[in-house]
Amino acid sequence: MSETLYDSFEKMGKKQNKEQVPPAAEPENKKPSSSKPSKKTPSSSTVTSPAHKSLEEAFKALDVGDLKEQLAHSQTLFPENPSVWLKDLAGYLNLHLTAPEAEPTLSSYAHDYPYCLTGKELKGVIKGLIARCGDILPDLFDHCVYTMLRELDRQSGEPLHGYRVCIQAILQDKPRIATQNLSEYLELLRSVQNRPVKCLTIMWALGQAGFFDLSQGLRVWLGIMLPVLGVKSLSSYAIAYLERLLLLHANLTKGFGIMGPKEFFPLLDFAFMPKNALSPSLQEQLRRLYPRLKVLAFGAKPESTLHTYLPSFLSRATPHCPDDMKREPFVY
């Protein structure tokens, strides 16, 4: 993996500390050591950006001119390696957008938060660099997601706002990037299933594609969120995301052809079958979304597609089947 400008500076700093800093001189008269441990002072070589009270304040304080200079320097040092430029962009933004971290799904904010906070000049810098590096944007997306997950492992991890901004900027222009490796991300999601914050971070990142492209959002939901819908710590966000996705895209025609019987009937069971993994309130929330999901499944000509669904509908027509589900094959 190519070394970024910030990696180079960090290594240079460590080398200088080892080679140039002389050992502290011993005092002439040694005092007996106290039983109380002395307080450690933070190293003066540690470079940190000042924390801001809010993310809005952090964006206002960000020096776009300095960012341009850093990116120009990165491109001079690594003229043939745009991957380094992009990673330096993400690293710079994350280093300077130091504000309290919100919960991982940002559900209480607008769907395009925090990218919506970028000013015109900063947005131009981000979009300009992304436009020059189209072929390697999938690598930047993966880099941002995996770096966020690593930060969550650290006891005093950095805020993740800069990486979130880059993810949203990428998927706004190239939403299909989020669905290129869904099977790998599902495997990753399952591997950290006992870490809900990590899972929700992955789901948030991939889900950003849906706010710019309904078909990609449905692919993310069916490929990543439906398989974990029965996981208590993840089901609430999965349904909330689906609700926001369907409300944002009033025209469902762009989502036709994504969902088939294989995806539809697990949703039907979650929505109507009693005593499943969903809480009653989440089941009711999903049931309210069900009519729109059925439109997406049956497509533009339900009369010509219903026959592919009918056998599975009939197999559910048992004495224990809820009445609402029994009526479903005849309501469209």
Rank of each mutant, 00 (worst) to 15 (best):
D66V: 09
E103S: 13
C116S: 14
L89R: 06
E80F: 06
E57K: 08
K87H: 02
L117S: 02
K40W: 07
D63W: 02
K40I: 14
N81S: 09
S44A: 15
F59G: 02
V125G: 03
T118R: 03
K60W: 08
P100D: 07
T76L: 10
T98K: 10
A110I: 04
E101R: 12
P104V: 07
S43A: 15
V125Q: 03
P79E: 05
D63K: 09
V47C: 03
V47Q: 14
N94A: 05
E103M: 08
K120G: 04
V125F: 00
G65C: 03
E69S: 14
K40E: 12
A110K: 11
N94F: 00
L62Y: 10
V64R: 03
P100R: 10
T41Y: 14
E56I: 13
T118N: 11
K123S: 13
Y109C: 13
T46A: 12
Y115I: 06
A72L: 12
H111S: 12
D112P: 01
P82W: 00
E69R: 13
K68L: 14
K53W: 02
T41N: 12
L106K: 08
A99E: 04
K87G: 02
D88P: 01
Q75C: 01
V125S: 07
H111Y: 09
K87P: 03
V84P: 00
E121F: 06
A110W: 07
G65I: 09
S45W: 13
G124M: 10
L86P: 00
K68Y: 01
A61R: 08
S108V: 05
N94E: 12
A90L: 07
G124I: 11
Q75L: 01
P104H: 06
L106Q: 08
L93E: 05
Q70R: 14
P114V: 08
